[in-house]
Amino acid sequence: MADLHVHFDRPLTADEAAVLKPLLSPAIALSAGADAPADATILISGRPTREQLAAAPGLRAVVIPWAGLPGETRDLLADFPGVAVHNLHHNAAPVAELALMLLLAAAKFALRYDRALRAGDWRPRYERATPALLLDGKTALILGYGAIGRRVAAACRALGMTTLATRRRLSAPAMDEGTLVHPPAALADLLPRAEALIICLPHTPRTDGLLGAAELGLLPSHSVLVNIGRGRIVDEAALYAALRDGRLRAAGLDVWYSYPPDEAARAAWPPSAYPFHELDNVIMSPHRGGAADETARLRMTALAAMLNDAARGREMGNRVDVEVGY
């Protein structure tokens, strides 16, 4: 008989099952569906319902199959203090790659030149002045030095950049693999040094509106901002104004302020109340940072390792502090 009953809130795809099942310990039983069985011990769900949590008295943990904790899920889980919450960090590589793509595309104004040449316009090649920013020798500040932030820092160092970072669980600056990591309280002192600001933070009550007009005003005027964390970490109006008025040189954004409420709205839904799409110094991406041709394999491999730890009596990794939000 299985010692661990793992329930998914949706059926696995054929590709997911083909990766996951051969990797699992025989002590693990799987089930799937909207209704959680009474004997479930671990629930795999991005947005569990109160009914699912209450249906399984022996539930020990919820695994959110991505990084982060949605606000409504955080509020719900506060009523179930005996249920641990864990994230999967399988998407660190593709998200870090997207951050690097956004940084380079924004710093080099790639879309402006692409758009011109598609129209047969070669004039940008002969312009004496260029808005493109040389990254070599510049300083990158990474907010959130976790699995994604570490990869971003390594990529920036490979470009010849000096890397600084902030991390929540830190009381004093410390060097980590070539990156000087600071406590979050040092943010105001670090922003004037950040010629590239790369946001890898989750959205929590503490990070909501972390960067407003005052904070953006501390950045050097030639700075590039990249956000692959969550949109509302940066004040929407302040970000638009800084980009429109040239106080920020450019931005690459994968996370937004407004999302389609249903499938019917997906074909025509503005991501912001402000016309970022009219600015040629902004690279826009529809929150696809974790998407890659191998995402399903990465997710299921990471999940199998976590579940096997639980089946063997070990503590599962990536535990979330529900009170803090990550």
Rank of each mutant, 00 (worst) to 15 (best):
L303E: 03
M306D: 08
A292D: 11
R312L: 02
A311P: 09
N318M: 01
T295W: 05
D293A: 13
R297K: 08
R288V: 14
V324D: 14
A296F: 09
R299Q: 01
G317C: 02
V324G: 03
V320C: 02
R299K: 12
M306H: 01
R312V: 00
G317P: 08
R299C: 02
L303Q: 08
R319C: 08
M300P: 02
A304S: 06
T301W: 04
D321C: 15
V322Q: 11
A305N: 08
V324R: 12
A304P: 00
T295L: 05
E315W: 00
T295D: 07
E294C: 08
L303V: 01
M316Q: 06
E294I: 03
G290V: 05
L298E: 10
L298R: 12
R299I: 05
E315A: 15
V322M: 09
E323M: 14
L298M: 13
R314K: 14
E294K: 07
L298F: 04
M316W: 10
E315N: 01
L303H: 04
T295P: 00
G313C: 12
L307T: 01
G317T: 06
R312N: 10
A291H: 13
A296I: 03
V324W: 15
T301N: 09
M306P: 01
A304F: 04
G317V: 01
R312A: 11
T295S: 12
R288G: 01
D293T: 12
N318F: 07
M300D: 09
L303A: 05
M300N: 10
L307N: 03
N308K: 10
E315Y: 08
T295Q: 10
A310N: 01
G289L: 11
G290N: 03
G325P: 09
R312F: 00
R312S: 07
G325K: 13
A304V: 01
M300I: 04
D321L: 15
L307V: 06
L307R: 02
V320F: 02
L303G: 02
L298Y: 09
G289Y: 09
D309Q: 00
L298A: 11
R314C: 01
T295E: 15
N318K: 10
N308F: 01
G317I: 08
A304Q: 00
A302S: 12
D321E: 13
D321G: 15
N318I: 11
A305I: 03
N308M: 07
A292H: 13
V322N: 05
R319K: 13
G313D: 03
D321S: 14
E315Q: 10
R319E: 15
G313T: 12
D293C: 06
A304L: 04
G289N: 03
A291G: 00
R297W: 14
T301G: 07
D321A: 14
A291L: 08
G325L: 13
E323D: 15
G313E: 11
V324M: 13
G290C: 02
A292N: 15
M316A: 15
G289Q: 04
L298N: 13
D309V: 00
E323L: 15
A291P: 00
M300Y: 02
G313Q: 11
E315P: 06
M316K: 02
A305T: 14
R314Y: 06
R312P: 02
G317L: 12
G313W: 09
R297H: 15
A305G: 14
A311I: 00
G313F: 10
R314Q: 06
G290P: 12
V320S: 04
V322G: 03
R319F: 07
A304E: 01
A296M: 01
D293K: 12
